[in-house]
Design a binder for these strands. Sequence first.
RNA 1: GCCCCCAUCGUCUAGUGGACUAGGAUACUGGCCUCUCACGCCAGAGACACGGGUUCGAAUCCCGUUGGGGGCGCCA
Length: 462
Amino acid sequence: MVVTRFPPSPTGHLHLGGARTALFNWLFTRHNRGKFILRFEDTDRERSKQEYVDSIIEALKWLGLDWDEGPYFQSKRLEIYQSYAQKLFEEGKAYYCECPKEILEKKRKERLEKGLKPRYDGTCRDKKLGPGEGRVLRIKAPEIGEIVFEDLLRGKIVFPAEEIDDFIILRSDGTPTYHFAVVIDDITMGITHVIRGDDHISNTPKQLLIYKALEVDPPEFAHIPMVLGSDGARLSKRHGAKSILEYRDVGFLPKALLNYLARLGWGYGDQEYFTVEELIEKFDLKSINLSPARFDQDKLLAINAYWIKNSDNKYLLEHLKYFLRGYDLGKFSEEYLLSAIETVKTRSKTLVEMAEMIEFYLVEEVSYDLDGAKKFLVPEIKPLLQKIGEDLKNLPLDEKRLEEYFRNLAEESGVKLKNIAQAVRVALTGRTVSPGLFEIIKVLGKEKVEKRLKKAIEFIRT
RNA sequence: GCCCCCAUCGUCUAGUGGACUAGGAUACUGGCCUCUCACGCCAGAGACACGGGUUCGAAUCCCGUUGGGGGCGCCA
């Protein structure tokens, strides 16, 4: 069975890049009916925060990326790492090192200045030191040869052994370093496929060394290209990469974000829009692009607009409620809210826009956009508003019939339909921009329309 | 500096040796529709980084150059 994992480190919020890695793992796993594990890599106690654990979980839940096991926390698994480390030490595959940090740092700089690759020089390699205060455990890396692995997407990748030094697997405080914890976790959790950003390609040989020392077969690796900012620079917390939750808060639909993220680096012929189900069905590691993809807000917006337009109103209402917290929606029937949504669907790129546009359906009294009111609520139009108010009482609330009525009115009165419509629009919505006039009248109902027309007439009088 | 990865319109991509006059999406421009704004529809402009090979034939295969990204921590 396929077993994958998503291992964020809780040192920041979940951002686009992390979310896409999670998504690719999740899609691959669901496609193969495997098991998806959530694991927090929090061995860096300084920077790991509970706050981030919470926000990452909230973001994954909002996206709908559910996991089958976990969350695990590396900080709670220290004994496991230590026992594996002990084993490597006893077998002579790892050794303790007492070199002080300052000297190591100095040597690193010297090598860098000479144009050499920084690398531990093996001072303690043969000292046969035991564990002790201030000592770290290093793995014995091969001095010659090649380290080779087969990436699922890129094929064979080869590193000269000289590239890899005797890196630290246990810090002086006894906690494991990243490479060690990852490998031990992936082994003990039975991970079969490691799908991660290609910034990990250079890390892979180190991890392979640990597998080899432990005599365990490594999992399959698939290194996916990273997501870059719109400026082409790396997406990271440091450069203000936004949290997934911020995308929620500015009105993106989770399925739109998922659709967008999936298409960033992956394609399926000419198809642009996918439901989550289609994604699961069609997703395939082999058709992932190899070059890094830039984040493009416009495209995300377009996909969001598409899904707003093409989702059913109930689904939209569920998500829209989050943005309508200031209103007592209980006052309205669900039917009213759903038909109101129907009229603003094609006009909203985000739920925030939708919430703004739908506002006039929810308020007791509309407030006028002053420029618009001045321009269209003019004395000449007053008798027409009065007539409309009267006539409406006997008209069926049918868009076709309403349109017919307004057209006749324009003809009879000699006032352009455009001017009548704009006046009524301002009266009913307070604005000069809104959904179609006839659909608004139909949704609002006669009572509200009449009331708002009266207010407009009042406005003209004063 | 050394090592690794990558390279099709601005951006996301289709393309796996001939069907390519390089397709789609988005953004942009023009038009149609029209009660406003959108939606929708039609049209336009816009790319195979460069140089060598291989081949009857290359966006597609090989090499080099250039460019971009990543790694080289007692961070992950």
